[in-house]
Simulated assay, not measured.
Amino acid sequence: MEWTGARYADKPTVEVRAWVGAPPDRVWELVSDVTLMPAMSGELQSVEWLDGATGPALGARFVGRNKHDSFGEWETTSQVIEHDRGRVFAWAVGDTENPSAVWRFRLEPKDGGTDLSQWMQMGPGRSGLSFAIDAMPDKEQKIVFVRLREFERNMAGVLEHIRKLAEV
């Protein structure tokens, strides 16, 4: 059977959901504070706001430094593209018109707590994964699949970390 997984140009996505026993305002404080994210991720090493920004706002930019066993170390600049307090927080990595990735948290009140989701889209702009695909174009779909599963596992860990912090 032929592999029919997504290609990078398809802008594949992954989403993870969790219920958090805390109100959306409390969860929002955590998901919109990108400087907390390195403590929740094995890949993201540090984050700092740029251009005098001190917190989340539409158009605010931040730099993230990352490390991965297969890809090495790199840094990216992201820009907040959605900022709806208590509901949506999203950023584009790299160029906002042609990002290498888009990340989004959505929060909805549910059963006295918050239904929290983290979603991400690969591409369409080039990323570190593009170099692996360039080197092994015949394995593109497997490379994309494996990376999406890594993101899914990491995102589940992030949501669990947020849940524990919010429910204290």
Rank of each mutant, 00 (worst) to 15 (best):
E2L: 07
W3L: 10
W3T: 03
W3R: 07
G5E: 01
G5Q: 00
A6V: 00
R7G: 04
Y8G: 00
A9I: 02
K11Q: 05
K11I: 00
K11F: 00
T13Q: 09
A18D: 11
A18P: 02
W19N: 09
A22G: 02
P23G: 09
P23S: 09
D25V: 08
R26P: 03
V27E: 09
W28K: 01
S32E: 14
V34R: 13
P38G: 12
M40G: 11
M40Y: 15
G42L: 11
G42W: 03
G42I: 10
L44T: 14
V47C: 14
W49G: 10
L50K: 07
L50G: 06
L50I: 09
D51Q: 09
D51V: 08
G52S: 03
A53W: 03
T54C: 07
G55K: 05
G55S: 12
A57F: 07
L58P: 03
G59W: 06
R61I: 06
F62Y: 07
F62L: 05
V63S: 13
V63R: 15
V63H: 10
G64L: 05
G64R: 02
R65D: 06
R65G: 07
R65A: 09
R65M: 02
N66A: 11
K67G: 11
D69H: 10
F71M: 14
G72C: 09
G72Q: 08
E73M: 08
E75P: 00
E75V: 02
T76S: 10
T76K: 01
Q79L: 00
D84H: 09
R85T: 13
G86Y: 04
F89C: 02
F89T: 04
W91H: 12
G94I: 03
T96P: 09
E97M: 08
P99F: 03
S100I: 01
S100D: 06
A101L: 06
A101F: 08
A101D: 12
W103M: 09
F105K: 02
E108L: 13
P109Y: 10
K110L: 15
G112E: 14
G113R: 08
T114L: 08
T114D: 10
T114N: 05
S117F: 10
Q118G: 05
Q118K: 03
Q118V: 05
W119M: 03
W119G: 03
M122E: 03
G125D: 08
G125N: 05
S130T: 15
F131M: 13
A132C: 01
I133R: 04
I133G: 06
D134G: 04
A135F: 05
M136G: 01
D138E: 15
D138K: 07
Q141I: 08
I143L: 11
F145D: 14
F145L: 12
V146I: 13
R147V: 14
R147C: 10
L148T: 04
L148Y: 01
R149Y: 04
E150T: 11
F151Y: 12
E152Y: 04
N154H: 10
N154Y: 07
N154W: 04
A156T: 08
A156K: 11
A156G: 11
G157P: 13
G157I: 11
G157Y: 13
V158T: 13
V158E: 13
E160Y: 02
K164V: 15
A166Q: 10
V168R: 15
V168Q: 15
